[in-house]
Design a protein around this nucleic acid. Structure first.
Length: 585
RNA sequence: GCGCUUGUAGCUCAACCGGAUAGAGCACCAGCCUUCUAAGCUGGGGGUUGCAGGUUCGAUUCCUGCCAAGCGCGCCA
């Protein structure tokens, strides 16, 4: 309908001589749904945008456009309003046909093909496998999977991916942390480094290793701590302290035994993350290992390409990437003085790999604290000779956690954080997902656990689910009363749905495809969430003021067809957000 | 100090890439269950959109400058 009106407007403009003669530039013809019913169903600001170029009063121009407008059976009235808006009133019967469309298309209704033929990768969460996911990751998970689902709904071929940082210093700290806890299990007495991972899950892994392997990995405390520089608590440098302990672990255990700790820690935690996300309704096409990238020599290849294009140079014993020539604020080290790659080096290789896989678009979803990282990755893509516009980085602000008036401290290293699993246990998957996705991702967010746990009844997700359950309940009632339902009869009598609330609900249902497309292309699932809440509200109001299971069959069947259409749309929307559709509550 | 993000009702958030009288939820007040689930509905109070300018028919939206908050500015990830 939007397109149809735009077409009519274009035809009208082409008939107005002075616009054609003066060669006025045509703006993209904007047709919007009216917010206020008094402004009709659709409105265009075309005259307002053209008026300046045409050097004519907007209202006068609008009047001329209206006069030149071809007639169309679906358009019953056109009005000039305000400073020069053109409002279109649509034949109500034309709206009713949307119910038929929804029933015919079912789960397909609202889907579109704007992204057809395009491969798009969405990488999200990608938390280091050094501990369980916390509520900050939960937001990225809910947001990322909703974005991915939306993109798939508008036709993109979507590839969901988790980048596993299974190489690098953090993993060494993890392995060493587990080993030290293991030594404690074995009865060795040592002070635990302040920079090691202190969470309870580390003890559990250590305990389990001790249970399976006994004392095989035990080394005496004296050997472990011999000549180790002091920790921060003793006036030393915590980084130097932990690095020394990592080296000590490697030498005392040897490569093979050390690797056991590394691998068991990684496997245990990664399995936990996978399970956690799965239970949260988040699944991936691929878990991409950083270590694999290194082992295959991809990092060296990527750097070689940069070197060939003249973007690498040596300074101070390190290898630098001249990212400042491509928009970054300074150059970045890719190979350290000690010969090791930086994290950034493998990230360059990873993005090269993404490009090589032929995605038309690449979406990275990061925590907002990484925003300073964007220019250097874009610079790397440019230096590799690719189009940096292919990469879109979407940022998710961390949630600040509160328990009532008290701020909850969050520190992965210290093991002080509320895990995603705890959150799910307390408020449930559906409430958590809806709560996360109700807000724009860049918006700072206060998450009050006390409120979320104490007042789950007031969580908006129940409101929306309740609407769904109510439709199911009506249909059950019909069954119990042995009521007949004639689908065809309902379709033939859709014009009986003439109450304001019915018209309103139908309008809203018709909007769904536009909501989906916009939410998808703008990467804003909150638009869908808000829409679903409004839709549920309109249904609840309707439910409270009209009886559906009435005696007169034509009206009853028409109403049932309407609320079933509502059920379809609401259900589709909830599916995309990864929220359950309860048949009863 | 520089950069990115954010600032909208008491609180949490919307506002369709510049549109018409800035909207919801929570909280507060007053009503609605012998009728398809009251986890619901109806009505009410609530606002100088951080501040000050600018751009134009028109600004919460764009530009500039301040103010405030968060984050970033490693040979960490």
């Amino acid at each position: 309908m939007k397109q149809k009106i735009a077409q009519l407007l274009i035809q009208a403009i082409e008939k107005i001589d002075f616009l054609v003669i003066d060669g006025v530039d045509m703006p993209a013809v904007a047709v919007e749904r009216s917010r206020d019913p008094r402004h009709g169903d659709y409105a265009s600001n075309l005259a307002l945008t053209l008026a300046k170029q045409a050097k004519i009063n907007p209202r006068e121009l609008a009047a001329q456009i209206i006069a030149a407008l071809p007639s169309d059976p679906a358009v019953v009235k056109v009005e000039l309003a305000g400073p020069g808006f053109i409002n279109f009133f649509i034949d109500p019967n034309a709206h009713h046909s949307i119910i038929k469309t929804i029933h015919e298309l079912g789960p397909q209704f609202g889907l579109s093909q704007v992204g057809a033929g395009k491969k798009i990768q969405v990488e999200f969460v990608s938390a280091n496998p050094t501990g369980p996911l916390h509520v900050g990751h939960g937001r990225g998970a809910a947001y990322g999977s909703a974005v991915a689902n939306l993109l798939a709904a508008v036709g993109f071929q979507v590839h969901r991916e988790y980048y596993v940082n299974d190489a690098g210093r953090q993993m060494d700290i993890l392995a060493t942390s587990i080993w030290l806890r293991y030594l404690e299990e074995c009865g060795e007495v040592l002070s635990f480094p302040c920079n090691a991972y202190r969470g309870e899950y580390i003890r559990e892994i250590a305990w389990s290793i001790h249970k399976d392997a006994g004392f095989e990995y035990r080394r005496p405390q004296a050997l472990v701590l011999e000549n180790i520089p002091a920790d921060e608590a003793q006036g030393g440098d915590k980084e130097v302290h932990i690095d020394a302990l990592i080296e000590r672990a490697k030498t005392l255990l040897g490569p093979k035994l050390y690797r056991d700790f590394f691998q068991i820690g990684l496997d245990t935690i990664l399995d936990d993350i996978k399970q956690d996300l799965h239970e949260f309704g988040v699944d991936y096409q691929q878990w991409f290992s950083e270590r694999t990238l290194l082992n295959k020599g991809c990092v060296e290849q990527a750097l070689e390409r940069l070197r060939t294009s003249g973007y690498l140079y040596q300074q101070g014993g390190a290898t630098w990437f001249a990212s400042s020539r491509l928009g970054d604020e300074k150059d970045r080290v890719v190979v350290r003085e000690n010969g090791q790659y930086t994290y950034f080096a493998s990230d360059i290789a990873y993005h090269l790999n993404k490009l090589d896989r032929g995605f038309d678009q690449i979406i990275d979803i990061w925590g907002a604290d990484h925003h300073g990282y964007i220019p250097r990755v874009k610079a790397a893509i440019k230096a590799l000779g690719a189009d940096s516009d292919k990469l879109t980085v979407l940022l998710v602000q961390f949630a600040t956690l509160w328990r009532g008036d008290e701020k909850v401290p969050m520190s992965t290293r210290a093991g002080e954080f509320v895990t995603l699993r705890q959150l799910r246990g307390e408020v449930g998957k559906d409430a958590a997902r809806f709560f996360y996705v109700l807000r724009r991702s860049e918006q700072h967010m206060d998450f009050d656990l006390k409120l979320a746990t104490e007042k789950t009844n007031e969580n908006p997700v129940f409101y929306v689910q309740y609407a769904y359950a109510r439709v199911c309940s009506v249909l059950r009632q019909l069954d119990e009363k042995n009521g007949q339902r004639n689908w065809l009869l309902g379709m033939e009598n859709l014009d009986l749905l003439s109450a304001d609330l019915e018209i309103q609900l139908i309008h809203s249902l018709a909007r769904y495809p536009e909501v989906l497309e916009k939410a998808a292309l703008q990467h804003e699932p909150h638009q869908l969430a808000h829409y679903l809440r409004e839709l549920a509200h309109e249904f609840h109001t309707y439910y409270n003021s009209h009886q559906f299971l009435v005696e007169e069959a034509p009206l009853r069947d028409a109403r049932l067809n309407l609320i079933c259409a509502f059920k379809h749309v609401l259900g589709n929307g909830l599916d995309l957000l990864g929220i359950n559709k309860p048949e009863s509550m």
